[in-house]
């Protein structure tokens, strides 16, 4: 597929509903996602986030509006090209397995794309190592625990090296370390392979690491911007039913108790720095 512009994904006035007599899931949604960046799409359950993911690789097609992947419009004719570019990992790994062993499962996508055997073995090893599942090569996927299954599902998608990777709440079942490993892995790959990463999530700690955040509410874009801008409007974020980072909330509480802190920290380091600056100044 030709890369015709710098936007990995573009939604132009997209509206979608499952049936004519049903309510709109997305109503006139427009946004642009820059290539090679991490973008978080957040919103409460039922806000239309997952529908966006399915529209991005043509699993669903919009009723109105246009969707472009690197400038190529997503439509019936382009679907197979699009799907080579847009890898997707869903929330429930049980619906994503085809192989009888972990190894076969990762191999499946590669075989479909006619990757030579030697390359296949190398990629299977690499991706399974990256998700910490190399010791399970010959295990049966259905016997793995939820988190392990999800790591294999991520490996299977990564193995075919898509240019856009969508994680649709894909880390929601992992334990804290598993989640951290996956996030580090996908960030590493994003930088190495120029991957555009789209994270659909309500994990606040995943959002603060994103370059850009799109907040969905009732099928519309509610706010968008960098994590700093988003979380500076505490009330707005809470209204949408989302958490703000613990340290941001704590800083706001400190301010309410008379401490004039300089900024809204998003990470522990930023909180400590802000407190330190305050301490030196007063």
């Amino acid at each position: 597929m030709k890369y015709m512009n710098n936007y990995a994904v573009e939604f132009n006035n997209v509206s979608f509903r499952y049936h004519e007599d049903e309510p709109w899931i997305l109503k006139d949604v427009s946004f642009k996602i820059e290539a090679n960046k991490t973008t978080a799409i957040i919103g409460h359950n039922g806000s239309g986030k997952s529908t966006i993911a399915k529209l991005m690789n043509g699993l669903l097609l919009p009723e109105h509006g246009q969707i472009y992947i690197y400038g190529t419009r997503v439509e019936e004719e382009s679907i197979w090209d699009i799907r080579r570019e847009v890898g997707m990992v869903f929330q429930n790994p049980d619906n994503q397995f085809v192989g009888t062993t972990v190894k076969d499962d990762v191999a499946f996508g590669l075989e479909n794309r006619g990757i030579p055997r030697l390359d296949m073995q190398k990629r299977i090893d690499e991706t399974l190592k990256a998700v910490g599942m190399i010791d399970y090569l010959l295990h049966e996927p259905y016997r793995l625990s939820g988190g392990q299954k999800q790591r294999v599902a991520i490996a299977s998608v990564m193995a075919i090296t898509p240019s856009i990777l969508i994680l649709d709440e894909a880390t929601s079942m992992l334990d804290p370390l598993g989640r951290k490993e996956i996030l580090e892995t996908v960030q590493h790959l994003r930088k190495k392979d120029n991957l555009s990463l789209i994270m659909i999530s309500h994990e606040v700690n995943e959002m603060i690491k994103a370059d850009y955040v799109i907040v969905m509410e009732d099928g519309k874009v509610s706010i968008e911007g960098t994590p700093k801008t988003i979380f500076s409007s505490e009330d707005r974020v809470k209204e949408v039913g989302l958490d703000i980072p613990l340290v941001t909330e704590f800083a706001l509480s400190l301010k309410r108790h008379g401490m004039e802190l300089e900024s809204n920290p998003l990470t522990h380091e930023e909180l400590l720095e802000t407190l330190w600056t305050y301490h030196l100044k007063t």
């Binding site: 509480s253 400190l254 401490m259 407190l275 330190w276 301490h279 007063t282």
Partner: peptide, 24 residues
């Protein structure tokens, strides 16, 4: 970082904020 000795016993963020503020 600040050589304080605040003990967490399930207090709220606001209660902690007061403790930190007093501590500093």
């Amino acid at each position: 970082r600040f050589g304080l000795s605040i003990d967490y016993q399930g207090q709220s963020l606001d209660e902690l904020a007061v403790q930190v503020s007093v501590g500093l």
